[in-house]
Design a binder for these strands. Structure first.
Lengths: 242, 242
DNA sequence: CGAGTATTTGATGCAGTTCAACGCTCGTGG
DNA sequence: CCACGAGCGTTGAACTGCATCAAATACTCG
């Protein structure tokens, strides 16, 4: 049985902005269905023109690009509430691939309804621009992180980002949250080799900043981590949920 | 004297999609004025909440972020036709700074009119999403480039990108175009040191791929360059112009 | 129990950083 | 009109953070 939008479990979190009931109904009508995917399942492929767009309801995933030489770069991680496939929605084809890391539940929208929805509900259209601008902002930060910082700083930045986002979704307890990725995924996201990623993690562990093992991330010294990362521990901004 | 939108010199280029006359009038009304800036002038500051948005009419600039440690990362270069300040437009404040590289002419819009324009002209609102999605796409590519490729490949990718964009604007002649940046700017964009950037450029020159000196970029072997960069020489897609 | 996958650790090498110095051009002021 | 300094490009030398290679240790699952 599908979740009705007005009972969407995500909306109870403060991180998501509230919408008027009539607009919630509009989102409900826009929603074409739900989809369950197993871990490590391909959701969107680079170059493909998917007829569907998604919003992650539960579970985590990752966006990545593969290169001619076989390497890949993980562009960003996907958390519940993230909108997936905007590029396919407006440009017709994806420029990166999307894959689940854990089992995921996805809210499905038809691309063919996208324009109609966009035109009819300008406030929601604005939300979509907001999401796109926020993603742009994130990517700019990630670019800066990878381009200018050392491996430990990159790692600290990434782990802190992940933790703050999970925290905003109520998915943390006692400075601990699930981090269902492989070290290889993080390595590919930070532009580091797997070996060096592992050694960098070991150093952060020795310095009593974080602990990550068996898919569980524990923040031990959040301020030390933030200082190393060169960021603050400010929670992510309130964001729209489509 | 200001340029009227319907006589905008940029629109004659095929790279920009055409709009209906009545919509051109709407853009004209949205336009609040024009601004001339000297080279190396700050246009938007990170953290500021600018009351204005811009479109570059002529000249080039760059977006960058500065870090606590004094380093900076150049997120992207700005060419004529680029929309500037979307983040300030939708989120109220910029996450990066914008600065001119050459003298620039900017088309000025008031942020206070933005929502009204957005709501009234859904096709143009859609264009804005398109621009945001395209920027997101570019940043994803840049991230992949910096995260996974060697210095020569990064450099080749960047120079090729720049050249293709300039070409689409009719700003090239005989495989040659102006490239009004310092080596330090490119270094900061690619996450390389200035010294290594210089040496990498020297290597590309020795291999007869490109030549860049005195602010002029000359592509000598575009296919060799594309191969090194791991990309194609496909021209950038047709894009909207606000 | 064996195969496949993920994590960990050690050893070695190199791509890229950092430090340092020099040349060129241009603007400024004596 | 020349001296000086600032900014940018170039080059050499030394160092190092990270990649690469290699191999051992878990762990899961058929």
């Amino acid at each position: 049985m599908q979740v009705e939008c007005r009972h969407c479990p995500l909306r109870k979190h403060d991180i998501f902005s509230s919408v008027r009931p009539d607009e919630l109904d509009a989102i409900q009508r826009f929603k074409a269905g739900e989809m369950q995917v197993a871990p490590q399942t391909s959701i969107l492929m680079e170059g493909s023109s998917s007829p569907q767009l998604y919003t992650a309801l539960s579970g985590t995933g990752l966006r990545y690009k593969t290169l001619e030489n076989g390497r890949r770069h993980v562009i960003s991680l996907i958390f519940p509430g993230d909108f997936i496939g905007l590029q396919a929605g407006v440009m017709g084809r994806m420029n990166h691939s999307v894959e689940s890391a854990t089992a995921m539940t996805l809210c499905v929208f038809n691309r063919s309804d996208f324009w109609q929805f966009f035109r009819t509900y300008p406030e929601r259209a604005y939300d979509i621009v907001w999401l796109a601008a926020t993603e742009e902002r994130f990517l700019g930060e990630a670019l800066t992180n990878i381009g200018q910082r050392s491996a430990p700083a990159r790692m600290a930045w990434a782990l802190l980002r992940i933790y703050m986002r999970m925290d905003a979704l109520g998915l943390t307890r006692d400075k601990t949250c699930a981090l269902p990725f492989r070290q290889q995924d993080i390595a590919d996201a930070l532009g580091l080799s797997l070996v060096h990623t592992n050694k960098t993690l070991a150093r952060l562990r020795e310095k009593s900043l974080v602990q990550w093992s068996d898919g569980v991330l524990q923040i031990i010294d959040i301020h030390g981590l933030a200082e190393l990362a060169g960021t603050t521990t400010k929670p992510p901004p309130v964001r729209p949920l489509i």
